[in-house]
Design a binder for these strands. Structure first.
Lengths: 224, 224
DNA sequence: CCCGCATCTTGCCGCCGACAAGATAGGGGC
DNA sequence: GCCCCTATCTTGTCGGCGGCAAGATGCGGG
């Protein structure tokens, strides 16, 4: 079969597209990045690829299944991006900051994919299709290892806290990313100023993480 | 006009509902909390309230306008909840922790509303309808004041950092909330264990914030 | 060579959001 | 007391969507 770019339309004369699954994923990713999840429609994709409106159903049971596949692909790229960032830095602290920055950068570079991965579409379902990034996923593993590396040099006695600390770091960078993508920050301010504030806030967040990790162990806050 | 509970159906004999706007908002909030944003349909609401399918259009230009109104209402309750939590605690640190817990608690108690407030529906639009919670909103103000209170007793010389620190705290609790609502945490683990891990992670996050605020000023991470 | 099955087709259904034009009623102005 | 004005709600319609069913096509293994 002649290998065409997977996003290509089906030639008019042909009956089978041949790479429809890949083509759908690519086109869906493009739409999601450019126009958002809300604008994604199976029929629209089918039209775009020169294929009948029911063709996608043979590759993805429904719209949700397509989004889940997109999320899975996103998780793979995401984990790779974080691992890459970690590999580039040798100093444990700088490594942690690099991972944090990579986390946010991924969200900024691929807002659509990021929203698919962490958005409500896949989690508001009953039952949720459980995207393949549980706590044992690649991204989490990178973060956890990086935090362990930092604790090893600053507070080996807090080794056992690694999971909690990693969660806190995850929450911080995730929150920063979400606030930028969907939060009120961007809507309220002119773009340039919003961006500047966000950058400053992100640096402050990383600084907070650094300060907490450098600080000696402290009694946790009183539980409510 | 006889004052009925605003969620009531229109009596069969009457032509005008009379409280349709409030009824729509209440019913929409209920649906969103119970079945998620995706399940919200203007026609369904109209049926539920015993009103024609086009009636809602006279009160909300479109589905988005209804969501925006819901978000506005949510922001008001949210700001009040945070202010309440802040008022209850006198010690600056405990106050900050209380505000953080209140933030997450609101998300846990009203996941639907929280998703409407901070979700993509209203931000993926072009142009975004800009929910009325810019950086100057009530919730942000409570958080900022609380952080200022902490800095005042721990590091008055870092007064100027208050905005950055507040952003970091905001990001952390927001991220924790989002990870619980839509993240992989819940889907991957059995409910009880997921909840336990989340609680532990939240406490670790608050501890991280506390440690960072107690620590003396540190050089920020190297900017990339 | 031919048959099986994956792939893709046409056709249909109900639901949705949006728009247009008409019915109803409640209340202010006279 | 009456009448009109306008907010409110109605019916009717349109196109688009997701999903299902049944039929057409053609690739590749036996």
């Amino acid at each position: 079969m002649p290998r065409r770019p997977s996003t290509a339309r089906k030639p008019a004369g042909r009956y089978h597209h041949g790479e429809l699954r890949h083509a759908l994923l690519d086109a869906a990713a493009a739409v999601v990045e450019r126009e958002g999840i809300g604008a994604l429609s199976l029929r629209e994709l089918a039209r775009r690829l020169g294929v009948s409106h029911a063709a996608p159903a043979h590759h993805f049971a429904d719209r949700t299944a397509l989004l889940a596949a997109l999320a899975a692909d996103g998780y793979a790229r995401f984990g790779a991006a974080l691992a890459d960032a970690a590999r580039r830095e040798r100093d444990p602290f700088e490594r942690l900051f690099a991972v944090g920055r990579a986390y946010v950068q991924f969200a900024l570079d691929h807002p659509g994919r990021f929203r698919v991965m962490f958005g409500r579409e896949l989690s508001e379902l009953d039952p949720p299709p459980c995207p393949p990034e549980p706590e044992g996923g690649a991204a989490w593993q990178v973060l956890l290892d990086t935090v362990r590396g930092v604790l090893e040099v600053t507070a080996p006695e807090r080794r056992a806290d690694a999971e909690g600390v990693a969660f806190a770091c995850w929450a911080t960078v995730h929150g920063a990313a979400m606030l930028w993508l969907d939060g009120p920050l961007r809507a309220a301010l002119p773009p340039a100023e919003a961006r500047a504030r966000f950058e400053a806030g992100l640096e402050a967040s990383l600084a907070m993480i650094g300060a907490a990790l450098r600080a000696p162990g402290r009694p946790p806050p009183r539980r409510r």
